[in-house]
């Protein structure tokens, strides 16, 4: 299925129909100082485009999550270039980052991170209240097939349902980028597939750049490109000629 392997940064020519969203050059992130210093990112080069479905693969500690945090504006890099359109994320203020996250980024976490005191609808509506041009909360929940469980509290939902609420919450603001860190990590296969289908559908219907971190190599079949990490660097990038539907993913 993998048709091409290249070790350098992806080039514009491969994505002529798509607009570049992120430009990452020589990105490093170091935690701690001196002997205790940990180089979580040791110089990453990567470009990401609108509507792409990216899967990040790699062993624990290879830097996937650190990169995702930098792209999501949760953390700032130690050095290097990190641009989202015209916004210099590497040197942005706290306020800029808040606005960036609010308007442009959707997050989906392994442990859902819903607000336990709000219902499914309210968890989504919480975000649509502060977004510019949101999808109605109900519509977003319909997209993840939860139209029937709008008024349930997180504690009344299964793990897969909670994760789908989290996806609805993430996409309701019509983000340009959807970041998912191990979205199926805490779920069984069947539920995991339902969640992946929801992510896939969002990617397709809203043309949202979708970046998914996973330990599960078979999920790579769903991606446009598969980025492999090791030791804080991009080890390789594979481009799939054809994306497999989530329902066909088997693990």
């Amino acid at each position: 299925m993998t048709t091409q392997t290249d070790s350098g940064p992806a080039t514009v020519s491969l994505h002529s129909d798509r607009e570049q969203l992120f430009r990452v050059r020589g990105l490093t992130k170091t935690y701690g100082v001196g002997d205790a210093a940990v180089h979580a990112l040791a110089g990453v080069d990567l470009d990401l485009y609108t509507g792409e479905f990216i899967v990040l693969l790699g062993p624990s500690g290879s830097g996937k999550t650190t990169l995702l945090n930098q792209i999501g504006g949760l953390d700032v890099p130690t050095s290097g270039e990190l641009r989202y359109r015209d916004l210099d994320l590497a040197n942005a203020t706290e306020e800029d980052l808040t606005h960036y996250r609010r308007d442009s980024v959707g997050f989906v976490f392994q442990f859902y991170n819903l607000i336990p005191s709000l219902t499914a609808r309210e968890n989504v509506a919480l975000i649509t209240e502060i977004a510019h041009d949101p999808i109605p909360a109900e519509t977003a929940l319909e997209m993840v097939n939860l139209g029937a469980r709008l008024d349930h509290f997180p504690a009344q939902l299964s793990g897969g349902e909670q994760q789908r609420v989290a996806i609805a919450r993430a996409i309701a603001k019509r983000p340009e980028v959807l970041l998912c860190d191990e979205p199926t990590g805490a779920l069984d296969i069947r539920t995991g597939i339902v969640v992946l289908e929801a992510i896939e559908r969002v990617n397709r219907e809203l043309s949202t750049l979708t970046v998914v971190i996973t330990h599960n190599a078979v999920m790579a079949q769903m991606a446009d490109r598969v980025v492999r990490f090791s030791d804080g660097r991009v080890h390789s990038i594979h481009k799939n000629s054809q994306r497999a539907p989530a329902s066909s993913v088997n693990w």
Binding site: L74, E94, R101, F107, N113, I115, I127, I130
Partner: peptide, 16 residues
């Protein structure tokens, strides 16, 4: 902390 941090992550400011 986790709930409040999540709110920050999804785009709420410290003040909010």
């Amino acid at each position: 902390a986790r709930e409040l941090a999540t709110l920050r992550v999804v785009g709420f400011s410290s003040r909010e």
